[in-house]
């Protein structure tokens, strides 16, 4: 039941005339989990619709396990999709919803029920098989939708912001279910989210999409700490981009240290308590540097303070390149400030 490699090459898609994907390429290795992130309007949903066949493509190709599938009808692609809304059929009960794909494949009624029951057990809904869909909570409905997708025994699983409609505690629980089931089955999976920390928790790798292109695809840590461009850096919360000669240096605010003595001297112009940290802005030689510090150590506004940028965390952004997809990480170069 292990997955197949997903390979999108030079995809161009224009739903409703204006181009949304412009020659996008993305490879998701067999059995791995990629979280697709990006601001709203970047084209994440359009990409999932193009892969699953719900949206026609203008150019490019989609391969699954090596075979091109972009010319096939939606129902012949072997791709299951979980949407933002559960999209369950209201006129049949939970187990019939879960077993819909089996019914389509002509599996007998008893076998369908058995498989559906086992699948419901796996998503933590054992015992709800006979219930009507309308009576379920939003979180339960989304679990049923997940069970339904898994029951189709797909070669690729696509999830389009499956957690957005849920409250935070249910969100965390369903996140765990998704990760666990994916790992058990080694199912090639793409999960769309617009939340970068959710992406870090859900994806073995993260693909960042901006304006219809994948701008960086790699391990979460790489995107958070070794962004390939200022735009990537900004999306992942690398709020310090410091011009230094011809290049730009990036450092995450939680890596910036503030010291009473020494360092580059500056004045605290802002200090906002944010629960687990204090967001501090220091005016320092005409630049504003941001630091996240533990509440007990937080300076006050107006205080003079020293800023230290640890060299192992300072990352010079590569000079502007046009090649979007960059994978892996290079070693941090030496930086002197």
């Amino acid at each position: 039941m292990s997955g197949h490699e997903l390979d999108c090459r030079d995809l161009s898609v224009s739903p409703g005339d204006s181009p949304v994907l412009r020659g996008l390429s993305l490879t998701v290795p067999a059995g791995s989990r990629t979280a697709l992130v990006g601001p709203s309007g970047a084209g994440k949903t359009t990409l999932l619709r193009a892969i699953s066949g719900l949206q026609d493509i203008d150019a490019g190709e989609v391969r699954l396990g090596g075979e091109p599938i972009h010319a096939r009808a939606v129902h012949r692609r072997g791709i299951a999709v979980v949407f933002q809304e559960p999209r369950l059929l209201p006129h049949i009960d939970v187990q019939d919803n879960v077993a819909l794909a089996l019914r389509a494949a002509g599996v007998g009624r008893r076998e369908r029920r058995r498989t559906a029951a086992a699948q419901l057990e796996e998503v933590g809904l054992g015992g709800l098989a006979d219930r009507r869909v309308q009576g379920l909570s939003g979180g339960e409905q989304q679990r049923v939708a997940l069970a339904r997708a898994l029951c189709a025994n797909p070669r690729l699983l696509l999830l389009d912001e499956p957690l957005t409609a849920l409250d935070p505690s249910r969100r965390a629980a369903l996140r765990r279910v998704i990760v666990e089931l994916q790992q058990q089955r080694r199912l090639t999976t793409v999960i769309v989210t617009h939340d970068r920390s959710e992406a870090a928790e859900l994806g073995q790798r993260i693909a960042l999409m901006l304006e219809g292109l994948i701008v960086q695809h790699g391990e979460p840590r790489t995107l958070f700490e070794r962004p390939v461009s200022a735009a990537v850096a900004r999306f992942f919360g690398v709020s310090n981009l410091i011009p230094s000669g011809a290049e730009t240096l990036a450092i995450r605010p939680e890596h910036v240290r503030l010291e009473r003595e020494g360092g580059r001297r500056g004045i605290v112009v802002e200090a906002v308590y944010a629960g687990d940290h204090v967001r501090v802005v220091v005016e320092c030689g005409g630049q504003r540097l941001r630091a996240h510090v533990p509440p007990p150590d937080a300076p006050r506004v107006g205080e003079q303070i020293g800023v230290i940028l640890p060299s192992e965390h300072v990352w010079p952004l590569p000079a502007a390149t046009s090649r979007p997809e960059v994978t892996g990480s290079s070693a941090a170069p030496r930086v002197t400030l």
């Binding site: 066949g53 719900l54 939606v74 129902h75 299951a80 999709v81 794909a101």
Partner: peptide, 27 residues
């Protein structure tokens, strides 16, 4: 919400005829 259900059913592998029978007709 019919188009949404229909898309979900298509992605699960239901043929156009099966969708007509199990998704559209009950609607």
């Amino acid at each position: 919400g019919h188009q949404e259900s229909d898309e979900a059913a298509a992605a699960l592998g239901l043929t156009p005829f099966q969708r007509l029978r199990w998704v559209t007709w009950p609607t």
